[in-house]
């Protein structure tokens, strides 16, 4: 797997490089420290996946998200995993707004768990989607607080499954995580999607997009008119 890394912080850049060097199937082919540099490196090296910071020069704003949007147009097949300090659902939603295929949103502290970082890179490079569990947890929690929350219709197990689906787990990965059979997971997933009236989609990345958008919408829209 050929990776282009974009990160302006020297310490983190060096750390990530060291970390990735421990995996024989991961090769960092280009390193950039700002948005134009990232786009150039992608042109030059034609990687399988981009690992990028959100906030970089020139504007120290949301360059990583902008890069992902730009690359969606120029290189639809390229995976982009965004590493961020911000646990804001808004950025994740922006990232998947024009399609969730091959897009990932991971909090920076996950670099501490090398395996998780590399697994996410692989998933995104394959066209899957990853959304950080903290973001998903936040959305699920907010959604559950609604008095007539549709999430109340889910069993605790199904809620857990929903979280994993939104995070980007495949059915197989969910089965491993929960130590149940693939068939059991399929049943859970289809029951969750049914109860929430979400489309039954076997494509993991589309499931992620549907779940995240759904969760962010129910979380922020309390039923009208209750408080006077």
């Amino acid at each position: 797997m050929r990776v282009v890394l974009a990160e302006d912080g020297e310490l983190i850049r060096a750390g990530v490089l060291t970390l990735l060097s421990g995996f024989s199937d991961v090769e960092v082919v280009g390193v950039a420290t700002d948005l134009p540099g990232l786009l150039r490196a992608v042109e030059e090296h034609d990687p399988d996946v981009v690992l990028t910071d959100v906030r970089m020069p020139p504007d120290h704003g949301d360059e990583g998200i902008r890069a992902a949007r730009e690359l969606r147009r120029t290189r639809p097949g390229l995976g982009v995993l965004v590493l961020t300090q911000y646990a804001d659902a808004q950025y994740a939603l922006d990232l998947i707004a024009e399609g969730s295929q091959g897009r990932g949103y991971l909090l920076k502290e996950r670099v501490g768990r090398a395996r998780q970082l590399v697994d996410s890179l692989r998933a995104v490079a394959r066209g899957g989607s990853v959304v950080d569990e903290t973001v998903v947890e936040m959305l699920v929690e907010a959604g559950r607080r609604r008095p007539d929350s549709p999430l109340a219709r889910l069993t605790p197990r199904e809620l857990e499954v929903l979280g994993l689906v939104a995070t980007g787990y495949t059915n197989q990965a969910i089965a491993e995580q929960l130590v149940v059979t693939d068939r059991a997971v399929e049943k859970h997933v289809s029951s969750v999607l049914n109860k929430l009236e979400l489309p039954q989609d076997s494509q993991t990345h589309r499931r992620v997009a549907a779940a995240i958008v759904y969760l962010s919408e129910i979380g922020e829209t309390a039923p009208p008119g209750r408080p006077r």
């Binding site: 659902a89 808004q90 907010a142 829209t221 309390a222």
Partner: peptide
């Protein structure tokens, strides 16, 4: 100072803040 306020403006920042409120909070 939330970055989402700088980057995305008032409503997205308030939506993010609403998610942290321990009771149902619509925006």
């Amino acid at each position: 100072y939330p970055a989402v306020l700088t980057e995305r403006g008032l409503v997205p920042a308030l939506r993010a803040a609403a998610l942290q409120v321990p009771v149902p909070c619509g925006v």
